[in-house]
Every structure is written in C-alpha cells, then in structure tokens.
C-alpha cells in the first residue's frame, strides 16, 4: 500500500453541519464580546464575582469622621440606599463635580492617562485618545508596543453603547438618569441578577476616560448615592499617592476626590486598602492599595481632558466602518 494513497483515502471527512457552524459561531461571539469589553476597559475586567472581598475593609468609625453623617439618607422614596455615610460622600462629590468648569460636546478627542495592573502583574501605562467622530488610538504597553487604533468613541452603559453625542443627550436629572440607565440594564441579554451592582459599574463606565459634562458627573454620583449596598471605606491614598475617599459595592471600589468629584482610582477584586481614620485630612498613615492574586485589578486615572489631535496609528489598517 502506498503511503500517500492511504493518507489521502483516510483524510476524507464530512463537512460540518450548519448546526455545528452556528454553534461554534455562538461560542466565538461570546468569547469575542467578553474580550472586547476587556480591551475597552483593560484593567477593569468586569467579572461578576458575587462573593464578598476576603479582606476586611476597615471603615472608620462614624465618630472619627469629619464628614457630616446623617442617621439616614433616603433619596429614593423609601427604598434602601447606600449607607448614610457613603451617600453623603457621593452627594458631596457630585456637588463638587457639578461645580467644575467645562462641558465638551464639540471636542475632537478626549485624552486620558492612567496606569493599571492586574493581579500581581506589572503596572502598565495607558494613554487613550477617544475620538468624537474620528477613530481613537491607544498607547498601552500592556497590549502592544505600537499605537493601537480604536473605534470611534463608544461608552458602555449596560446593554447599550453610547456615542459621544448620546452621552451628552443623557438626562442630568439624577432620577431621570437612573431610570434610563436601569432600563438599559433590563435590555441586556442574559440574566443580570444584581442590577444594583450593574448600575454601580455603569456609573464608573460613564465617568472614567469620558468627556461627561460636569452636570452629568454630578448626576452620576447622585445615582451612585442611591444604590443599595454601597458602603464607605474611608480615606485612602491611591496608587499615585493622592488622597481620596473610597466607596465600594461588592468588590468594586471607587476612589474619588471629594474636592472636585474626580474619579481617581477604581479597583475590582482583592483591593486592599488601609484606611485613615480622619476623613478629609491628608492621608497620613494611609497606604497605597494593592492587589493580590490574578483576579483583581486597579486602574489609576492621572489626567484627562479635551485635545484637538491624536497620534496616528500606523501599525495596522484603520478601522473600516463598512467592515
């Protein structure tokens, strides 16, 4: 028997059935969607771990906080809300954010510089130019050494992705905004069991690397103040050594600057922060957060603002809108 003949004869197999191809396509689509979310939000993988953090978040006692703490803060018609101290922090941050100058409905790009690390991995620098009408670009040494082309701006909001203009069309009344964002969660394919947790994540999605106007930032923090289960961690130093106040829900944590309502840092999973007892003061004694294990991540937002131009990505073909 000739080897070539034997191998040729034994190579014949049927083609895949339409069902097999469709099934494989579905699996690929799910993996692609998960990967796309990760790429758009590197450093903020949105795993839906339901377990509580293993760490003990040392919340400063109410008596030691400089912050004004009301017994209850009910902004939602009797529904349970964020704990009173967390709600106070978030409302103050919203007021501070709303008082900032700005509003960039016509800017060409939004540039943001951050650092991130996942698990015990190296810290990477991420610089992104989000394009209003043109494609954006990304410099991220954790992804590629070259400049990476991105899509035109899309900001995730539950099941929807908002364009720059759609971001500016969101209501800035916080109750109307919450209704709209919650409606988006309801549209999301698959079952979202923790809709409050999803809403808390969306608040971060719309605040980070985003040209959201001050009025929208104020409304977003107010929405966060009404989310049940949000708790105050206290004063922390972020990875850049800046003082901020941390709030969290589940293992998703935001560190914000109460003076201007900026999102300084966020983390998910195994964030470990030592808390200063004197909220509002310098973070003496507060240690920078750390992440251990492969599941956690921290993103630290260093600067952001509107710019007119972006670098040119030359390493790959730019996005073809028809494709």
């Amino acid at each position: 028997m000739d080897l070539d003949t034997l191998l040729r004869e034994t190579a014949a197999v049927p083609d895949p059935s339409p069902h097999a191809l469709a099934s494989g396509r579905t699996v690929l689509a799910a993996a692609t969607a998960a990967s796309g979310r990760r790429l758009c939000a590197i450093g903020r993988a949105r795993s839906r771990r339901t377990r509580r953090l293993g760490l003990t978040a040392i919340v400063a006692s109410a008596a030691s906080l400089v912050l004004v703490i009301a017994p209850t803060v009910d902004l939602n018609g009797g529904r349970p809300v964020a704990t009173a101290d967390a709600a106070q922090v978030l409302l103050r941050a919203g007021t501070a954010a709303g008082a900032q100058p700005g509003g960039w409905p016509d800017a060409a790009y939004w540039r943001s510089v951050s650092t991130y690390h996942q698990g015990s991995g190296a810290t990477h620098r991420r610089e992104i130019w989000i394009g209003h009408h043109a494609i954006g670009v990304l410099k991220d040494d954790g992804v590629d050494s070259d400049v990476i082309p991105l899509d035109v701006a899309l900001f995730p909001a539950g099941s929807r992705a908002l364009s720059w203009d759609a971001l500016y069309a969101l209501p800035t009344d916080s109750l109307a905004l919450e209704r709209e964002l919650r409606a988006g969660i309801g549209d999301r394919p698959g079952k979202v069991t923790d809709k409050d947790g999803e809403l808390f994540v969306i608040v971060g999605d719309l605040l980070r690397e985003s040209p959201a106007a001050p009025a929208l930032r104020e409304a977003l923090w107010e929405v966060a103040a009404r989310i049940p289960g949000v708790t105050l961690v206290g004063v922390v130093a972020d990875s850049a050594g800046r003082s901020g106040v941390a709030v969290e829900r589940g293992d998703q944590r935001y560190v914000l600057d109460p003076k201007d309502g900026r999102l300084l840092e966020e983390s998910e999973g195994r964030g470990s922060t030592t808390v200063s007892a004197n909220a509002g003061s310098a973070p003496d004694g507060a240690s920078a957060p750390s992440v251990t294990g492969q599941g956690g991540w921290i993103s630290t937002y260093l600067e952001q603002g509107p710019v007119d131009t972006a670098p040119t990505a030359t390493n790959v073909a730019p996005k073809d809108k028809k494709g």
Binding site: P16, H19, A20, L21, S23, G24, V27, A31
Partner: peptide
C-alpha cells in the same frame, strides 16, 4: 468535533 469547534475559536 462539533462540540470542540467553538472552543478552538474561543
């Protein structure tokens, strides 16, 4: 093979 096809691409 039908079961593994999607797994390969994932």
């Amino acid at each position: 093979a039908e079961d593994l096809l999607g797994e390969v691409f994932a």
